[in-house]
């Protein structure tokens, strides 16, 4: 019983997703389109497929050898945290500052230590992206000033 095999975890995740889809689909109602398929028809078909594939993967994983691949390491954790924070609060952060800070943090996480590179590249990327999108494509990007 290998409960930590990647297929076991994948299968369990698919079964959980299928359960969520079924529970939400059953509460959907039929709406105005009574003469045709209900809005929950396709989601329920998908959920049935997910149950079959999830159960197959779960059983295969339980009988298999090996474990889960490492999902995170230190560097990817830093990049992921920075990305999650910036993109989640994208609307509230000045895009020029956000791009600069994210770029700098990522470059440091990747071990780039050349001072000139660390100073110039984040500023240059921030300026190029801001100018090309706000001036070139006339997109109103989030800014503080």
């Amino acid at each position: 019983m290998n409960i930590l095999h990647k297929d076991t975890v994948s299968g369990a995740a698919l079964l959980a997703l299928a359960a969520l889809v079924v529970s939400m689909s059953l509460d959907m109602g039929t709406g105005a389109g009574g003469e045709t398929l209900t809005p929950s028809f396709v989601p329920l078909i998908c959920a049935a497929g997910l149950v079959v594939s999830g159960a197959f993967l779960l059983l295969r994983g339980l009988r298999a050898e090996g474990g889960m691949p490492a999902i995170l390491d230190r560097r990817i954790a830093i990049v992921m945290i920075a990305l999650v924070f910036y993109l989640w609060f994208f609307h509230a952060i000045d895009v020029r500052f956000g791009v600069w800070a994210f770029t700098l943090a990522t470059m440091l996480a990747f071990g780039i230590r050349a001072p000139l590179m660390l100073i110039l590249y984040p500023v240059a990327l921030s300026a190029i992206l801001y100018l090309s999108f706000s001036w070139g494509f006339r997109v109103v990007l989030p800014t503080w000033i």
Binding site: M28, G31, S40, C46, G49, F56, L57
Partner: peptide, 28 residues
């Protein structure tokens, strides 16, 4: 094949999110 099948079903599920254009019911 199983994982490809599951991924395709996941994609179809993603495409059902939002107001159903026929019934007007909100999904997921």
């Amino acid at each position: 094949l199983t994982k490809g099948f599951a991924a395709a079903l996941f994609g179809i599920l993603v495409s059902t999110v939002g107001i159903d254009p026929v019934s007007g019911v909100g999904r997921f």
